[in-house]
Computed example of a mutant assay.
Amino acid sequence: MSTEALLHDIRQQLLEGGLHGCLLVRDLHTGAELGIEPDVQLPAASLVKVPLALATAERIRRGELDGAAAIDVQPGRITTPGPTGLTRFRHPARIALDDLLYLSTSVSDGAAADALFDLTPAAQVADILHELGLDGITIRHGMHELTQTPSERFTPDQAHLAHTLAIEAGTSGRGHQVHQLDTTRANTGSARAWTDLLQALWTPSAIHTETAARVRDLMAHNLLRHRLAPDFSSDASGWSSKTGTLLNLRHEIGVVEHSDGHAFAIAVLTESLVPASIQPGADILMAQAARRLHDHLRQL
């Protein structure tokens, strides 16, 4: 199948499955890449925890923060499905900064991430990204705002109403009545921007080698492996990644490293057009699309 036919087929498969997808796969050794709408900006959801981890790890390396320092964290007390870790705690906890970094990145704990944002605010994270030459990702706020969506205002049996609003209340310019989905107010990035970040973490770049290695290790130990991991993890390949989920958004970025030395950065950002919170088929479809792009690029 030609490259053009493959891209058309993948785009149609995603749409038939109720997904609008923005994807990019890049060979980290040659720079060759294949993508579908890779420059469209979408709200980042929990993907923002990767630049947060990068900024935090870099400040620890510089001596601006002490990884062993204990931080008092208030409980999130969130009871709706989805959030993890401290976000669901009922009581305050005292946790070392290094461990908050693990919880935020590898467990996708929003409360842990907000504790890190208290130390390195969104504007400072953005400044560090700019300093490192990574200008395609916009950081505007922490994670608490992502627990204040219509989803938290409806009962579980009304979840479809929140998703209907997410699907239908956007504008052609990617504004949105739900401000967490409005690209002028949310943390945002394109598939290309996230792939650029992955490349900077996995290959020589302005990021210090110690900082990059730490973030790679956190992503290698990501516990949320239901989305792309089944198609990229094996005895002959490792998958390091971060997921992002918010209302009808389902994202994952990661790097697959094969035993033969080849490595590919992969970013899959999607918007579901189906008003349902639980859609395992969407996760499967995302993985299949990414795998087809990866396999075609690797054969080339």
Rank of each mutant, 00 (worst) to 15 (best):
S259I: 12
I266P: 04
H296E: 13
C22S: 14
H176Q: 13
V73N: 07
L100A: 09
D99I: 05
D114Y: 01
S106N: 07
I95Y: 07
H294K: 12
L247K: 02
L86N: 05
G238H: 14
L181D: 06
R11A: 14
L197V: 02
G82Q: 08
H20S: 10
T87H: 05
Q13M: 12
V215K: 01
P275C: 09
D235N: 09
Q288C: 13
L224F: 07
T84S: 14
Q148L: 15
S241G: 00
L52G: 02
H20Q: 14
A69F: 00
A93K: 11
Q74D: 15
G261M: 08
G21T: 12
A265T: 07
H208D: 15
L224P: 01
D260M: 09
L132C: 11
Q279F: 03
G254S: 02
D109I: 02
H176R: 10
T209N: 09
T79W: 11
D99T: 07
S277N: 11
Q199C: 12
G281H: 11
I60N: 06
V73C: 08
L42Y: 12
A53Q: 04
A123Q: 06
Q148M: 15
R140G: 01
L119S: 04
R214K: 15
D217S: 15
Q148D: 15
A111E: 13
